[in-house]
Structures are given as structure tokens and as C-alpha cells.
Design a protein around this nucleic acid. Sequence first.
DNA 1: CTGGGGAAGGGGCCC
DNA 2: GGGGCCCCTTCCCCA
Length: 441
Amino acid sequence: MEISSHQSHLLQQLNEQRRQDVFCDCSILVEGKVFKAHRNVLFASSGYFKMLLSQNSKETSQPTTATFQAFSPDTFTVILDFVYSGKLSLTGQNVIEVMSAASFLQMTDVISVCKTFIKSSLDISEKEKDRYFSLSDKDANSNGVERSSFYSGGWQEGSSSPRSHLSPEQGTGIISGKSWNKYNYHPASQKNTQQPLAKHEPRKESIKKTKHLRLSQPSEVTHYKSSKREVRTSDSSSHASQSEEQAQIDAEMDSTPVGYQYGQGSDVTSKSFPDDLPRMRFKCPYCTHVVKRKADLKRHLRCHTGERPYPCQACGKRFSRLDHLSSHFRTIHQACKLICRKCKRHVTDLTGQVVQEGTRRYRLCNECLAEFGIDSLPIDLEAEQHLMSPSDGDKDSRWHLSEDENRSYVEIVEDGSADLVIQQVDDSEEEEEKEIKPNIR
DNA sequence: CTGGGGAAGGGGCCC
DNA sequence: GGGGCCCCTTCCCCA
């Protein structure tokens, strides 16, 4: 006979003991803050502690002290609360650091939940971007409550792949249940996350996209750099079902190396622990890459998640980074290079002109212009700076397409003053765009 | 088939 | 933390 409430009751009791510092035989020092806990609980919940405490098992009579500097006390509070309650309090602000800490502590359940959380976040943000020009603003967070989600169930029976429909962009949500598989799950939205660009990107980008659309497989975990080419040429994963993808994630989690090359600053006072790397704080949970700054990790994660929040308003191509978009726009659509495309000679405004070919622009010297019989296109590049001004605010509104103009995100937009045809292209328009002839005037 | 050039994309790092 | 620049590698197209 099994009493179902026993597990939760036991966990509650342990948590109470921890709070009251009863039978606590382990102290964890995180940036000066001391956390009390039970060795057996830590041993059971963290691969890191399992390794640490197993090495220290013969000295059970003495209390164990571990010191961490790889993450903040707040982050460890979230981790420890999860260990003793099964509830993980994630927010958009702490998810990166919690995932890094969980990666360090080898808590695969927490990592999985963080991944799901991030994916859900990207899913929502991508949806919002797609609707940017066609929908009026909806204050999805009008309640003003701190965006957070509580994931629970990791300790519960029947635990399977952690999945959630909540995201940090959807306001407060509390998930509680017996097991993960009780949560609502929306494969369609997740699929959208995995293919956020399909609608707007030319078809020829599809192969390249697969590199970004798939979450890393085990091979990428250890050989991410070297496997780039293979990944790019493999298109099959983009059609993988959500369950297969989750299986990949799970497989990855299972294959996560034990010897984490991670976050320095971790040091165990009562028991030495291998840690010889230079001081780095943030390790990518998808690969072995380690960065010094959280912002760099956030940027790096986009190459795994496939998030491309910066669309080119001229051609529709999307970029993962604003500087790449800027570079693309300057090169492709603004003809900033003062080099004749034909003869490669340096040209100035006097010795050459800008020629437009579809949404592309380039410069030709006067000689090449005469040779090819193409009249120059009088474009006031200065006047077009407003189309791509780095100082403009929101990354999605930088193009200054005012709502008053009521122009759809995907419709053709003509800027008369600049004589520039701005066109959003999707798959169906790709072939058409290829056939655009040079804009001869 | 091959080499060169352009474009894309990722990392480091400064402001 | 975001923006931006620089450097490098990889990929793709074309002659």
C-alpha cells in the first residue's frame, strides 16, 4: 500500500528542518551568504554535490562546507528552494543565471526547465514581433505583476520531460501539479519557435537555417564549432517533430559531461574540487562555450535557439544581431562601399553613381556605367539614413514605418522621397525577386 | 572543378 | 546590458 502524500510530506519536513537549521550538516557559502542544507538531500539532487560529497563521504562526522562564487546568492536560493520543494521560481531576469548555476551543479531537471522557459520566451517574443505591424498594442502584462513562473513537479512521481506553456512574457503564472506531463503543452507554438523565420526568409536560406533551428544535439555539445558544416547541410532536423526534438534535448542532457569546464570562482573549502580554468562565469548549456559576461551568453544562445529578432525591412532577411543587420543594410541596401562593383576601383560621388538592382544597391564608376549603358540612379543616401538609424530606439520600430501609414509588415512599401522600394519577401516571392532586373532609369 | 570575392555569422571586447 | 566595431571563419556564388 502506498501513501501518495508521503513524498511531499517528507520533502516538507526536510524543508522545515532546513529553515530551522535542524540536522543540517552542510554549509554552502555563496558570495558571503551561508546556506544550510542536508548532505543527503544535496547528494540526491545535484551531480556536483554527489561527486563532492562522495569524495567526502568518509569524513561524515565533520560538517561539509562548500563555497561558490560562480553564481549569486539569489540564484542559489532559487536552486535550493527547488531542491527542497520541487518548485522552481524562474523569471526572465534570473533564468540565464539559474540555468548556468544548474549546469554547474549538474541538475539536469533544472536545466531542462530553464531551456523550456527560454524557448517559451522566445516563442512569445517572436510571435509579438510577427504581429508588430498588423496588430494594435495589447498590454499583455497590464497587471504589473513581476513576471515569473513557478515550475514544480520535478520531484513528483511520473516526472517526464518538463514542458510548460508559460513564458516570462506572459505575466505571472503558477504551475503546480503532480507531474510534468500534466501541464498543457502546445506543440504548435513550440514549432513556431523552432521556425520563426520560415515566413519571411527566402527559401534558399532554409538549409542554413537548420543550424539555428535545431537545438543542439549531442554532437554539437562537444563539437559545435567543427560540426557547423555538417549541421548546415542537414535539413532533416527542421522537420523533426516536437517530441523528437525534446528527445534530442533529453539526450543532450544525458550526455552532458560530468567534468564541467565551467565557472571558476567555485571553490570548496573543506574538500578540494577540480577547477583549473581561467575565471569564467557563464557556460553555455548547449555547448562547451564559456563567456565572461551574461550579455555575451545571451547573445551566444541565439545561435542555438535560432532567434533572429532583427529583420531587415528592405529584404526581409532576419538577423540574430543588430550589428549584423546594420552591416548587412549598409553593404546591401545602402551601397556604402565606395568601390565600383565592376572594375573594383575606388569611386566617389563624383566619379561614380549608385545603381539599384531590386532591393540591392551598389556603386559603379562612370566608365562602367557608360560601358553597360546603365543610367545612374539619383539616390540621396543621406536622406535615407532615417531608414536605418542606429540611434533609433526599439529594434522593431527603427524603420520608422509609422502606424498612421497603416502599412502591413509584409506589404510593399514605397518611400517616395528616397525612391527606395522596400519589400518584405516571403517564400512565395523569392523566385520573383530573383528576376528583378537592374533598376534602369 | 577550382579559386577568389562577397556576405553571413560568431566571438572578443570596448564604450 | 546594449550597441557597435573588429577580426576571423564559413558558406555560397560566379568566373
